[in-house]
Simulated assay, not measured.
Amino acid sequence: MARVDSARVASKREREKRMVSEMIALYCRKRHGARRGELCPECAELAEYARRRSDRCPFMETKTFCSNCRVHCYKPEMREKIREVMRFSGSRMIFHHPVAAIRHVTETKAEERRLKRERDA
């Protein structure tokens, strides 16, 4: 059972890192003029930082998204940068990665229902 759980958590961690990287890449292409497959130094630093945070996240098994986490492990400066990326890229992901965008919406709604049930209990 533990092996299945650890494989599920590892898969979830990799999916999260891939999605954040895609969002940063989209942001960098549109805002900084980077070519596909490349990032400017600032965005490359943010992408690496986000991957490290995800690698070290102790709540990966139970959390859905960092924005719903009780512990914010990003430094304030990096947290503001990732918020800007998310605000910009979030609504555009439906055109670039529709399956991932729909998955995100359904997981967000499920998480909102779960948190509401916990509050009401």
Results as ranks from 00 to 15, higher is better:
2 A>E: 08
2 A>Y: 06
4 V>H: 08
5 D>G: 14
7 A>R: 09
9 V>K: 05
12 K>A: 00
16 E>F: 00
17 K>V: 09
22 E>N: 15
22 E>R: 12
22 E>A: 15
27 Y>R: 02
28 C>D: 01
28 C>F: 02
29 R>F: 13
29 R>L: 14
33 G>D: 12
34 A>R: 07
35 R>Y: 11
35 R>G: 10
36 R>C: 11
40 C>S: 05
41 P>W: 08
41 P>T: 12
43 C>V: 11
49 Y>S: 06
50 A>N: 07
51 R>I: 04
51 R>T: 06
55 D>R: 00
55 D>N: 01
56 R>L: 01
56 R>V: 01
56 R>T: 00
59 F>N: 05
63 K>M: 02
63 K>P: 00
63 K>Q: 03
64 T>W: 01
67 S>L: 10
67 S>D: 08
70 R>C: 15
70 R>M: 14
71 V>A: 09
72 H>F: 07
72 H>Y: 04
76 P>D: 09
77 E>T: 14
77 E>A: 13
79 R>K: 09
80 E>T: 14
82 I>V: 06
83 R>Y: 05
88 F>Q: 01
89 S>F: 09
91 S>D: 05
96 H>A: 15
97 H>S: 12
99 V>I: 11
99 V>K: 08
101 A>H: 00
103 R>Q: 11
104 H>M: 15
105 V>N: 02
107 E>I: 12
109 K>C: 15
111 E>A: 07
112 E>R: 07
112 E>F: 11
113 R>A: 15
113 R>G: 07
115 L>V: 03
115 L>S: 04
117 R>C: 00
119 R>W: 14
119 R>N: 12
120 D>N: 05
